[in-house]
Design a binder for these strands. Structure first.
Lengths: 160, 160
DNA sequence: TATTGTTATACTCTATAACTATA
DNA sequence: TATAGTTATAGAGTATAACAATA
């Protein structure tokens, strides 16, 4: 199998035409998960491309849309990122006036987040890109989609 | 342009106890792919943890092991990363003497890569971590593993 | 004392472009 | 001219720790 022979150290360059072997990696879910995520991410960026819409914005806008009045802390928990990671994203979204905030009289440390009309529009556009992207994925996974999502969700629930 | 009805603009902070809603994201394969990959990555790092073994090294060591004499260019293609991304990884692996290289008489621009015995050992340790990690994943996906890998592979083949 | 959000900082992974030395 | 590999640089994405204001 392996061309490894310690007695005579090899020096020959592997022929470029020979197929690359991946060994045990081939049968690891984690390895394919990484490659698939990377491919999916790139494909999504190709769709949103020119509009300079960061993929990271999408989840934040969607979560605020579906949870109007959510706080930055709750947002950071919901998106699985540290609060310090959320701050610059929100700063940019506030600066572009896609998100607005209102102070919370009950707790002056925090505030409530909402989408502006422009934010709703931007989200709608991103959602259209995501829907198109997911149609590509749907074609690939076919009737196994729900099974697939169920398994991915279990991976997150157990490992994270 | 302004669709906001000021009189009804919301300001109430969303109750922290309310569950966060994700809307259409819930039904997107790409979204769950991202979360699952992140969870799997973190779990793998927890396993290799102290040994200061970068997850990025694993694929490079495994590919060289299974393809002795591979060139940096072929390695970059095989791992789906740019050649400039491979250079610093190889520099570190060469410095730690996990990888050695020999010049190629037929083409002096390039060289052949091999694992040293220490590199084989390191790879074996990483492989043990990966195997343990994949056992965790196996428990989660159960008898759907092959189906899962097949779908992930198709996603890469179609989108990448 | 604990928590919210901000800031400073740093680390990982990645890519593009310019460069060199070959081919 | 084209390709292999290196270097310089930059940009996402992420995290930790220290901090000010508030609870």
């Amino acid at each position: 199998m392996d061309k490894t022979d310690i007695s005579k150290a090899q020096t020959r360059v592997k022929d470029d035409a020979e197929p690359v072997l991946l060994g045990e990696l081939e049968n690891y879910v984690g390895f394919h998960l990484r490659l698939a995520q990377s491919a999916s991410f790139k494909a999504f960026r190709r769709l949103t491309g020119e509009s300079s819409l960061r993929p990271g914005w999408f989840a934040v806008l969607a979560i605020i849309h579906h949870n109007p009045g959510i706080t930055p802390m709750a947002l950071s928990r919901a998106s699985g990122r540290d609060k310090s990671t959320i701050t610059p994203v929100l700063r940019e979204l506030l600066h572009e006036e896609l998100v607005r905030r209102s102070t919370n009289p009950a707790d002056k440390r925090s505030y409530a987040l909402f989408l502006t009309p422009a934010g709703e529009e931007k989200l709608a556009h991103l959602a259209a890109c995501a829907a198109e992207h997911d149609r590509e994925l749907d074609e690939i996974v076919g009737d196994k989609k729900q099974e697939m999502i169920r398994l991915l969700r279990r991976i997150v629930a157990v490992l994270d």
